[in-house]
Simulated assay, not measured.
Amino acid sequence: MGISQTVKRAAAGVAAAGMLTAATLAVTTGPAAAAMGKGRVQICAQGNYAAYLSFEGSRYSTSVLAVPGACVKTDIPTSTYQIGVNGVYNSGASFRMGAFVASSSDDPGWKVYTKGTTAAWWWYADRN
């Protein structure tokens, strides 16, 4: 076997390995749609205002603030029986959007999305 045959085979091997790597990445990467783990919740502020969650029934009062365009994950505190969804005006004052029944034993956890503007807001929670 000459040098040119060896180079051709090596190049074919490298190309095949590269295609397998690209295929593996295409299969293993995807949108951030992974399920939340047991007792976890995520708030995504997709409107033009910040949002946060309040944990009712627990000794903890609120979650971390999600700024517009961001998502924040946290654990649902023990003794929580309901999660409140809250928005924040630009002035810093907050407003109650609603609530849903949830607990730290929920498996899978929850994803909460706030949308719209402070004048025309809406939200939904997805057990994911």
Rank of each mutant, 00 (worst) to 15 (best):
S61C: 06
V72C: 00
P31Q: 08
V14T: 14
R9Y: 10
Q42A: 15
A70T: 14
S79N: 15
K115A: 07
Q42D: 06
K111Y: 15
S104Y: 05
Y52A: 00
G109W: 02
I76D: 00
M36F: 08
L25M: 11
S104L: 01
K73D: 15
G69W: 12
F95C: 01
G30Y: 03
A119W: 04
A26Y: 03
I76C: 00
P77A: 12
W123K: 05
T80C: 02
A125C: 04
T74G: 09
T62N: 10
A102Q: 08
S61K: 12
W110R: 08
T62H: 09
V85F: 00
A26L: 07
G69I: 11
A125V: 03
G13Y: 07
G13D: 11
N48D: 11
P31C: 05
A102G: 07
S79R: 15
A12G: 04
Y113T: 08
G37A: 14
K73H: 11
M1V: 14
A23E: 07
S63P: 04
Y81G: 13
L53P: 11
A10L: 15
V67K: 14
S105P: 08
T80R: 06
Y113L: 06
G57I: 10
Y113M: 06
G69V: 09
D107P: 10
N86Y: 10
G39D: 01
L53K: 13
A16G: 05
V112H: 03
W121Q: 15
T28A: 02
I43Q: 01
G2N: 13
A66W: 09
L53T: 04
V41E: 01
S63W: 02
V64E: 13
R9I: 08
L20Q: 09
S63I: 02
V64C: 02
A32I: 08
G37P: 04
W122F: 13
V7E: 05
F100M: 03
